[in-house]
Write a protein that binds this DNA or RNA. Sequence first.
DNA 1: CCTGCGATGTCCT
DNA 2: GGACATCGCAGGA
Length: 199
Amino acid sequence: MKLPLDFYRRPDPVGIARELIGKHLFTRIDGVLTGGRIVETEAYAHLNDQACHSHLGRYTARTKIMYEPGGVAYTYLIYGRYTLFNIITNEAGKADAVLIRGLEPLEGIPEMLLRRGITAVQRNLTSGPGLLTQALGITTAHYGTDLTGNFIWMEDQGEKVAYEDIIASPRVGIDYAGEDAALPWRFRLKDSKWVSPAK
DNA sequence: CCTGCGATGTCCT
DNA sequence: GGACATCGCAGGA
């Protein structure tokens, strides 16, 4: 079933990031269904987390969507070439987010290969936050997209992932966050080949 | 207005 | 292991 707004509008982005492992992410862009199983996430909290774009209430053109009620997409361009996809969680004004970092491709694989410009189903089809967005057709144009709508959504397909099968470790690429860089808020499905290659 | 750089990935050595 | 592409945004002037 499609994850409802209630799922997103809760506190504790860390718990939500963990719960999203084993859920499914779908897009229907230009009428084409693509999607897969989420195997890697990271949590970003508006409180006491220097790595979070909304840290200290920072409110800019880029971060304003984070202050909406949970259940919308936060997309942004990184390094001038990759779009990263986050879900916004919590209630309005409590700007938490979860970054989706790894996906096991399941649905619409031919279209995803086409978008990625590769011919074989291999790890770099959807392993990595900048790659899965390409495969799914997510761009900065999807900034603010309703995650319970018909373009981007998540589903619980009934899978129960065992606690010990989810590996928690420090987040990637946030050395600037000082001691918060050590927080174990990156979650990966154990033994999945579809987690991002990042250390 | 101007400058520096990032929640990355790829290619080269 | 290291260089670097490429551009919107953040922050300072």
